[in-house]
């Protein structure tokens, strides 16, 4: 029997490892990306997903004028700042960043509902319903780019949820003598002394990781 990590795709082969997956201790984590044991699924023949011949059944929402929240506007503009940076347009990048900063602070009103539980619940909601719905629409519309972000985003959201759960169980001990590493390309988070050589989600080299110090926002 084989088990596959839903974050990075690492396969645990009971036959090769000589230890049944069920006998691994609960605190065992994925040797490649650090996801918890619970993030592994039994490896079956490739699951049939998406197009079962049914036609487009994604809800037709009268998109037209969607009002974007301040939080999303902050992301739109910080992304455009990044786009300008990549095009070596420093002045434009700075102007977009200024607008992004405005919307970041505008969106930062106190969320009375903010708790580690609500953060985990939101990740769960996206993993179980929002990402699958987005993936289905992307498949129906044959949008390769949208499919790609569904894959990366879902994996990154999964690892975030897993780390929150590991912290809930292990507390500060989880981070003792370890650093928190962030992939600056896809957002993958990794706890360890050194960053992974390749990002397990988007495959960029380790120098694209940054050491998160905390309190720099």
């Amino acid at each position: 029997m084989k088990y596959v990590c839903t974050v990075c795709g690492h396969v645990y082969d009971e036959e090769a490892e000589k230890v049944p997956f069920s006998s691994l201790p609960p605190q065992w984590t994925c040797p490649r990306c650090g996801a918890e044991k619970a993030m592994f699924d039994p490896l079956e023949e490739k699951k049939e997903r998406g197009n079962d011949g049914s036609t487009d059944e994604s809800p037709e929402q009268g998109q037209g004028e969607t009002k974007l929240s301040a939080g999303v506007l902050a992301a739109v503009f910080s992304n455009l700042a990044r786009g300008c940076e990549k095009q070596y347009k420093a002045e434009e990048a700075e102007l977009f960043a200024k607008i992004a900063a405005f919307y970041t602070s505008l969106s930062d009103d106190d969320d009375t509902d903010a708790s580690p539980e609500s953060l985990a619940a939101l990740a769960q909601e996206d993993i179980s319903s929002t990402y699958p719905a987005a993936r289905k629409t992307a498949e129906n519309k044959m949008d390769r780019g949208a499919l790609r972000i569904c894959t990366w985003g879902e994996k990154v959201t999964r690892i975030a949820r897993s780390l929150l759960s590991q912290y809930r169980k292990g507390g500060e001990e989880l981070l003792r003598e370890s650093e928190v590493w962030l992939c600056t390309v896809c957002g993958f988070v990794y706890i360890g002394r050194k960053p992974p050589e390749l990002c397990p989600v988007c495959k960029v080299p380790s120098w694209k990781f940054t050491n998160v110090e905390g309190g720099e926002m």
């Binding site: 985003g153 959201t157 975030a160 896809c186 957002g187 993958f188 988070v189 998160v212 110090e213 720099e216």
Partner: peptide
């Protein structure tokens, strides 16, 4: 902090 920045990176990409 890492999860906050990570969530922003994902939102930007989306």
């Amino acid at each position: 902090t890492a999860i906050a920045i990570s969530s922003r990176l994902v939102a930007e990409d989306i």
